[in-house]
Simulated scan of single mutants.
Amino acid sequence: MNRVIYRSSFFFLFWFFGFTNLYAQQALEIKGLCIALPQPEFLDDFIDFAAKELKPSGINTLVLRVDYRYQYESRPELRGENPMSKAQVKKLVDACEDLGIEIIPQLNLLGHQSWHSKATKLLEVYPEFDETPNIKLPDTYEWPNEDGLYCKSYCPQHPNVHDVVFDLVDEIVEVFKAKAFHAGMDEVFYLAHKDCQRCNGYDPAKLFANEVLKINNHLAKKDIRLWIWGDRLIDGAETGIGMWEASMNNTARAIDIIPKSVVICDWHYEKAYPTPAYFATKGFNVVACPWRKPNVAKEQVEMITDFKSNSNKKMASRYLGVMHTYWSSAEKFMKEYKNPAHKIDEKGYSSVLTFKAMANSIKELGEK
């Protein structure tokens, strides 16, 4: 009789702790939102929104696209329009700390140094950093175009570019009290370009990897972790994903060169591609990122959770979670979020409803 009780107790404990461990694997470490830094005049509104909407939705991580919208003191020439002050940033950081929301500041490095017909502040002030100086920004932008122009890049081998951009990086990680920094690095179409006297003829994968290494090593001095977008590390031809959400310009091999400490934000907007598993098996921590299709967000939450549940402890720990990406202003996001009449458009898109679908899916799967 005692043996029967012992065995029954043993199997109950095995089942219980196994189930508990499975649930622990399912818990998402990152429940995030990537959004633009709010305009200074809307700072209080954003803090209120974070308290009343984001925190109750389960959000614990904000990647804030700062770029040139901060009052840089080290490089005041690189202040953009309507920049936020140090005191305003401190107010935002303190409020998010109280809410248990971590802020990760973002400054686009390497790529996205222009947008269609307008250069970012970096290339506006330092045009010598341009990877493609012979390609001019048109008055009226169209895609496709003969130059293959989407966004400009800075030359990663220019001898002075890192002195400038690292001043900005150092300043914003300090003012945001950041433990991690997002360097962007997505959609880098101009790299090892024939127009660049320094990069022409170089292996794009090595150039990309070297830039990641340089940024990572700089941040590591202050024990700050690097986050980047993952598209340049996916082979667009082999996967069939193509040139936007993956690479068709020979950068994908960089995945075997860059440090495993880098966190990969794996954005896919039309389908929930299972590429988080690719990054995890390569040794990287990964975050799945939706944008404008609610069903894709739901599928990405389910996918990440399934990957965690069906992995061993080592692999499961690499699936960090899900982060919604929003590519307009914080003010527009808040307005649409609060509008009860807001709905899916004729193309089936709504970034706000996609965010809500992500948050609801996490809660439905037992997240707190």
Rank of each mutant, 00 (worst) to 15 (best):
N2L: 15
F16P: 08
T20N: 15
D45V: 06
D48N: 02
A51H: 09
K52T: 12
G58D: 05
G58S: 08
L62E: 05
R65M: 12
P76Q: 01
R79N: 06
C96A: 02
L99T: 04
E102H: 15
I103Q: 00
E128S: 06
E128P: 04
F129H: 00
E131I: 14
L137M: 14
T140Y: 05
Y141P: 11
V164R: 01
D167N: 13
V169T: 12
V169D: 01
H193Q: 00
R198W: 12
N200P: 08
Y202I: 03
D203Y: 10
P204E: 01
F208N: 01
F208L: 02
N210G: 00
N210C: 04
E211Y: 05
I215D: 02
H218R: 13
K222S: 06
T239R: 09
A246K: 07
R253P: 01
H268F: 14
T281S: 13
T281M: 06
N295T: 10
V296F: 07
E299L: 11
T305S: 13
N312Q: 13
A316K: 09
A316R: 11
R318M: 02
L320E: 07
G321M: 11
G321K: 12
K335M: 07
A341I: 10
K347G: 12
Y349W: 15
S350T: 08
S351P: 10
V352N: 08
E364H: 09
L365S: 02
